[in-house]
């Protein structure tokens, strides 16, 4: 088990290196660079920039160097923990990303917990009450949940809230707290706002997880060990919860591996629609403005979160399933 985790951890830098190459190629790929589009913006505004100044900027960001040198310079500063300077904002990227990163993670984790808290009981109910009315209702809701894109759900909710109740449900903080420093009151304010985007973000996953849970549990309910447990004289709900539910959840743990990363990157779209202050909108702007080091840093952070998500899932799987745990030993 420890060896298995160690193996994974050793793989981490290799993966990160590969990803950094991919990411760099992607942010470097658009024709031109930030300065050309910056100049175009300035020109359209009627002003211009002096050639000397332009050259100075180019040198500062190393844009005059060949691509591989640019990559190595980026790597060099990354290895020192320096994410570089944003071309557009002229501020260190780490400052720009900082708090937004934590909000991204918080939102994903919230969505994750909401998903599990809803999906597992719903799946258990559906499987143990197969073909009941509520089972059908849940099945229909699941299909619709899977079929509705996040951003559309966000739009519908925002529209209903605005048109019916005249409230705006955007943002993660109320206006008083957006710029405020962290305090207990600000955390409470965050908790009051985060659940709705979290639901929007998690609804598709909830629907999918409910379906998997239902199918898995239906498979397990007819296994001989359930008969054994029942023949012991355990009460029905104890039988179901201790044995088949446990075995039905095990494979779900492996879904965390793709679900958590999906939430991290999915939050990007929801954040854009609901104007949440996480890294999503920042990435979107950086990409369109060719603010390449900022975009690169954010993309690399997404990659890192994805790897971590998979790692968490692998470790959890080994914890809950002795068969996998022993295999590694």
């Amino acid at each position: 088990m420890l060896r298995f985790i160690a193996q994974r951890l050793l793989l981490l830098p290799v993966l990160l290196f590969l990803f950094s190459v991919v990411v760099f190629i992607l942010v470097e790929a658009p024709p031109g660079d930030f300065l050309t589009s910056y100049m175009a913006t300035l020109a359209s505004g009627g002003s211009s920039i002096e050639t000397e100044q332009l050259e100075a900027l180019k040198q500062q960001f190393g844009l005059d160097q060949p691509i591989h040198i640019q990559y190595l310079r980026w790597m060099e500063s990354l290895s020192k923990g320096d994410l570089g300077l944003s071309l557009e904002y002229q501020r260190p990227n780490i400052d720009l990303i900082g708090e937004r990163l934590w909000l991204t993670i918080a939102l994903a984790l919230f969505a994750f917990f909401i998903t599990w808290i809803i999906a597992i009981p719903a799946g258990i109910y559906s499987a143990t009450h197969q073909n009941s009315l509520l089972d059908y209702v849940l099945t229909v809701l699941n299909y619709i949940g899977v079929a509705t894109p996040n951003f559309l759900l966000a739009l519908i909710l925002m529209w209903v809230a605005y048109a019916q109740f005249n409230v705006s449900i955007t943002g993660l903080f109320s206006s008083d707290y957006i710029q405020a420093p962290w305090s207990v009151a600000r955390v409470i304010d965050l908790l009051q706002h985060i659940w709705l985007p979290a639901i929007v973000l998690g609804i598709g996953g909830t629907a999918r997880l409910t379906r998997i849970m239902r199918a898995n549990l239906l498979d397990e309910l007819h296994k001989p060990y359930v008969v054994t447990a029942r023949a012991k004289g355990l009460s029905e709900w104890k039988v179901v919860l201790k044995y088949p539910v446990r075995l039905a959840i095990n494979p779900l743990v492996s879904t965390i591996g793709w679900y958590l990363p999906q939430l991290f990157s999915g939050s990007l779209i929801v954040a854009t629609v609901m104007s949440l202050q996480n890294v999503g909108p920042l990435l979107l702007r950086a990409l369109t403005q060719q603010d390449m080091y900022l975009a690169g840093s954010i993309l690399l952070i997404y990659c890192f979160l994805t790897i971590i998500g998979t790692l968490i899932s692998d470790v959890l799987l080994a914890i809950v399933d002795p068969r996998i745990r022993m295999e590694g030993a």
Partner: peptide, 20 residues
């Protein structure tokens, strides 16, 4: 495996943003 461990949506965005 490498492709599957990439964060899909951000990478998609980066790719489409790279289109001329």
């Amino acid at each position: 495996e490498l492709l599957q461990s990439l964060p899909t949506i951000p990478i998609w965005l980066a790719m489409t943003a790279a289109l001329p």
